[in-house]
Amino acid sequence: MRRAEIRLAGSGGQGIILAAKVIAEAAGIFSNYNVLQSQIYGAAARGELSKADVIIDEGDIYTLEISAADILLSLSQEAYDKYSKELKEDGKMIIDSFYVKNYDQLDKRIYPFPISELSKQLANSELFSNMISVGIITQMTKYFSEESILKSVEKNVPKNFVEMNIKAVKIGFEKVAEKYPNIC
């Protein structure tokens, strides 16, 4: 595959960094691509803007930073406002339609999902928004297999939570299949 640039953004505490790590390992360890994962450091402990990038490439990765993303996940309005301009012409943006209310309805690159709502339905908590997003991204991009992402989840989440996280990822798979069967 050619170089793919994924940017995950949301609020601190939404599990953005873990989601990035899961995606990076799915591509890098459980599929045989080169990957580079980075994130902003500093203020994103709770509630502030949090951002993590994953670059996937068959060849060597020389450009260490993303200027425009192929895939952009926005889990908060602030994340949308800040990064939506940095999406490629042929890129895709996945938004949590519960938190991102104010977006360009005409932009065909935007794919809204009620991510946090789905998480609440699953576990009465928004804790699984990140893994639902991971499932959505996997299914929409096909950068790596379902198997790779599930293995990566198993490796990266605490033992007691593997089952729930895998359920969350699978919800992501299903929602894409339901809503955008053409993509699948």
Binding site: K21, A24, G28, I29, N34, V35, L36, Q37, S38, Q39, Y41, I61, L64
Partner: peptide, 10 residues
């Protein structure tokens, strides 16, 4: 440097 220190690679 801060980039090499914090970025994750294989």
């Amino acid at each position: 440097d801060e980039i090499i220190a914090h970025m994750r690679e294989k």
